[in-house]
Design a protein around this nucleic acid. Sequence first.
RNA 1: GGAGAGGUGGCCGAGCGGCUUAAGGCAACGGUUUGCUAAACCGUCAUACUCUGUAAAGGGGUAUCGGGGGUUCGAAUCCCCCCCUCUCCGCCA
Length: 424
Amino acid sequence: MIDIKRIREETDVVRQAVADKNMRVDIDRILAVDGKRRELETEFNNLRHEQKQAGEKIAKAGKDEKAALSQEMGKVKARIQAIEEDLAQVEAELNELMLTVPQVPSPESPRGPDASGNVEVRKHGATRNKADFGFPFRDHVEIGESLKLFDLERGVKLAGSRNYVLTGAGAMLHEAVLRLAWDIMMEAGFTPMTVPVLVTEKLMYGTGFFPLHRDEVYLCERDEQCLVGTAEVPVTGFHGDEILSLDELPKTYVARSTCFRREAGAAGRDTRGLYRIHFFDKLEQVVVCKADAAESAKWHEKIIANSEKTLQALELPYRVVEVCTGDMGQGKYRMYDIETWMPSREAYSETHSASAFHDFQARRLNLRYRDENGKPQFCHTLNNTVIASPRILIPLLELNQLADGGVRVPEALRKYMGGMERID
RNA sequence: GGAGAGGUGGCCGAGCGGCUUAAGGCAACGGUUUGCUAAACCGUCAUACUCUGUAAAGGGGUAUCGGGGGUUCGAAUCCCCCCCUCUCCGCCA
């Protein structure tokens, strides 16, 4: 959500944001409905004022006068009820429209229509293609099946397409990666938490996933709850409807959760292996800080650094990409993806996503703090993947495969795997 | 899942149709007093929208007593539905 005043006062800026983000939002309609709302509200307020004053008079009046006044106020009551009905309708429409208005992106974000407009910021580590291995390259599916690291067929048997079961050393590797990431975040001083993964719809609106991305979410409609696609949802919502004091900011949280995604728009895409699946585990970092662009930007850098540190510990080559306006999504102010090199795809592929929202989520969540002058302000929120598995196992297995068919375990993971140096 | 009791400002807690613009207390903040601290005393002490107004400020109005609907000239107060919390019972990792 953005401030409606901004739509009134900086209409062109908002229009440009809609265009830059490749969205369609009827700004004129919003302005019209907002005007109508204010008109009705003023009338409502005036009538209520009249009603309240009359109420005082009636309380003190004699019997006859009381009856006369009451009858008179009956008319006012009817008008108030009519206006209330109109107002409710207008407010509902305005709210619905407002939920679709994008955050105005950073002037520094590259402008572009889609992923093609994203800009590489930096690279780390040496990449290797299939031909560079010096022995017949096997992709992660072949490695996993031969070493019994996961079972895709039985995953489908249990839960349908895009499901899987990690087994044996595969499950161990999955846990090891998450535990390494956990320890890195503990060292960074973030506060760990466990959070519900089945949450209210209100929270999905609050974090900006609804209404636009409803199709991508599993609904438990009988209970009016949703399975989250990321721990960002409950963690960012943790302080919703609160006014934090300045001295308790920033809040730096990290939470592991299973993430559920319908992948509704991706039918037929990335169907092989563990790349695009309906559930996975992710360690997510979330920062809530004061509404200061520089402060917010500083934390954005910090949470990206945490993720890079994790990838470096895993010895994985990656690049950081700045996401352009057309690809960043409705709520984002600025966004970076980290893409890890995957030899089977002969490409860097998205494994992390670092977003700065400014006050977009905080407004929807009513997440505030009291500033230096004691005035409530909306916080800024940010989040980034620390590690998501099993997707990260794709480059991990492929890049560490050995000529003899085994897989080398990276140094940093060995202590989480009982000292195991290789998987055979 | 069954039975009962509740949900009022940052917290405690009164109010159960119109002298409530939500009493009183605690905490917090500002001030007076003081050698310092404490105490005492005085003051401030919700949020949102809106109108008015200013260099800042300020002032007026409306809404909000878990959420929604209803009754009434008038609802924190009465009625209905929902949500949540607590106690007891049942079930359970």
